[in-house]
Design a protein around this nucleic acid. Sequence first.
DNA 1: TCCGGCGTGGATCGGTCGTTCCAGAACGCA
DNA 2: TGCGTTCTGGAACGACCGATCCACGCCGGA
Lengths: 194, 194
Amino acid sequence: MPRAKAFDETAVLDRAANLFWDRGYEAVSIQDLVDHLGLSRSSLYDTFGGKQALYLAALDRYRLGDEATADPIQAFIAVHGSPRQGIAAYFDAVVDDAAANCLGCFVVNATAERAAHDPETAERTRASLDVFQAQFERAVRLAQEAGEIPADRDARALGRVLVNMVYGLRVTARVSPDRAVLADVVAQTMRLLD
Amino acid sequence: MPRAKAFDETAVLDRAANLFWDRGYEAVSIQDLVDHLGLSRSSLYDTFGGKQALYLAALDRYRLGDEATADPIQAFIAVHGSPRQGIAAYFDAVVDDAAANCLGCFVVNATAERAAHDPETAERTRASLDVFQAQFERAVRLAQEAGEIPADRDARALGRVLVNMVYGLRVTARVSPDRAVLADVVAQTMRLLD
DNA sequence: TCCGGCGTGGATCGGTCGTTCCAGAACGCA
DNA sequence: TGCGTTCTGGAACGACCGATCCACGCCGGA
């Protein structure tokens, strides 16, 4: 085993994800990647295969993330004790994040830019949508069990509308990172849980 | 005045809008435009100035559209007589459209792909967001005057959440044009008007 | 019928795209 | 130390990018 790679693969993927996240797929060139990722052109192709494969790997890295952030809503619920307060706190965090850096969400951007024309991206963004929706649905069920949301509400439908709201927020924030607007959207949406 | 242009400028803009709408900005080349628009490279540059300018013109054409479709929500309200039924019918139309062709919305796609890095696109997408929100707000006020929505609701906040929901739908539909999902989102959101 | 001016088609510009390739440096092992 | 393997930097590839340019052809006005 002669020579170790001079770069950390996951760190490179993180940087690539940030770049694609910010500018999208088409607007990032291989030269941009070489300049920002800290590895040579050859290493990039040897390690990841090419631009498309690197994009998908970066998307996976962003989607799946660290194990710690696998279900951020559950994390907020655990912190706050109450499922409903956890959901609210998660929304507040999304608003803060969206208002601070108007990058939107890598998955949302990938969906809008590439899902319609790249089956592999579509597969991943669809999976993320499903996972995200299931996470909300689970949080809603927990809140129903805790008596914080009426038991006769359709948890799946609520999960769908919540994830849809977050997707909308991520798009809106790209052009209008106005905290009042985003907070209004969250406040109104929370009324669906009454 | 020696020679007339051999193409219809608005028809070309419509075709350009469809192309950019479908593939985004970066993924469409000048050659693609020449091939699909039915005018020569020279005429394209002479008439519109360049790719960026053509994109903005196509975006304006899509945004402003014909005068007839300036406020589609009001059009639906006029047809149905009731503001609330008009809003519901508009949402149904959005769901039908989104489920049929998963193109999303040109403005939403432009927001996600280019608004963050192109000030001229940002200006237009922000204006469209504001107009769209104001249209919803106006419809909500009409419904309140008709006693179809409680008068103590914040019409502006409702307008914000409704346009946000539509934006989310347009993104979701790109990867999951599942009518049940979209209809669930609409049905839940309509509860906000109770 | 000729002329002057504008739209048109196509060649062409320099630059950059994604990708490939190779010579040489760096390293573990004998 | 020498060997074999792997990674690295950079040159180079053909293709295509957005944009420019110009000779040709068409047309309305004399």
